[in-house]
């Protein structure tokens, strides 16, 4: 069977990683390419880069970043942020990105999902969804949780799957940053109805949280940022622990 994936996520602004990283032996903690290389050496299965650049130069810096990563890193990676149309995705694909992730652009223009899947294949299209529990419902949020939509998360996931999404990256805003564990109940419920891969995100604080989400919700991958960046969890240790608990991982 396919192994469970561990995915570090890097926030990038103007071609530099924004969250501090305290690895040893790092010449430049802000260089996303060096970080990506380090993570690939540690045994990360995949990487996600979220570009939060807000300038007109963003497209150029994104393309340069993608090319540099593809030149030096021998594992797959996804890039998200600022992809609003087919041509944005096309240039990233041709620069070496394996997948693109879209979030609010998909909510604003759901047809974009169909267009991307038709043009590049569904395996290329990751739909990122930020969800938060509001008045008894799981609702899709935009702009890092600042904007609440009326879309119910479960329905939105069904819709994007029908439209040709190849994978779902689901971040629980209720759990994100808490380090109290992934949102097992929600992820389990979603995963039972899903026929495409699901990446769990939000809440990782210790190695057991990863074991729990794989064992209890059977998600395909788990994504985290700070626990990896600050060296609180080392990927080789994490994978050994997961394997000890009979979870199939690439070691």
């Amino acid at each position: 069977m396919v192994s469970k994936r561990i995915i570090p996520c890097l926030d990038v602004k103007d071609g530099r990683t924004v969250k501090g990283v305290n690895f040893v032996n790092l010449r430049d903690a802000g260089d996303p390419v060096e970080l990506a290389w380090q993570y690939s050496r540690q045994g990360a299965d995949e990487l996600v880069f979220l570009d939060i650049t807000a300038t007109n130069e963003r497209r150029k810096t994104m393309v340069e970043l993608v090319k540099s990563v593809a030149r030096q890193v021998n594992i797959p990676f996804t890039i998200g942020g600022g992809i609003n149309e087919l041509s944005d995705a096309d240039v990233l694909l041709n620069s070496g990105a394996d997948k693109i992730s879209i979030n609010s652009a998909a909510v604003r223009n759901p047809d974009l999902i169909n267009e991307l899947a038709a043009a590049f294949g569904k395996q290329f299209v990751v739909i990122a969804i930020d969800t938060k529990y509001v008045n008894g419902k799981n609702l899709v949020h935009l702009n890092g949780g600042r904007i609440t939509t009326e879309l119910e998360t479960e329905q939105w996931i069904k819709e994007v799957e029908d439209r040709g999404a190849g994978e779902i990256l689901l971040t629980s805003m209720d759990h994100d940053g808490t380090k109290a564990g992934f949102d097992t109940n929600l992820l389990k419920k979603i995963n039972q109805t899903l026929s495409i891969p699901l990446i769990a995100s939000g809440g990782a604080g210790c190695m057991q949280h990863f074991a729990d989400i794989f064992l209890e919700a059977n998600v395909d991958a788990a994504l985290a940022a700070s626990v990896f960046h600050y060296g609180e969890i080392l990927i080789p240790d994490l994978k050994r622990e997961l394997r000890k608990q009979n979870i199939e991982v690439r070691l």
Partner: peptide, 15 residues
Amino acid sequence: TSDLKVKVPHMGWNR
């Protein structure tokens, strides 16, 4: 096919 009870696409690292 769906009767194989696997997610499609097959995406990730396999032996």
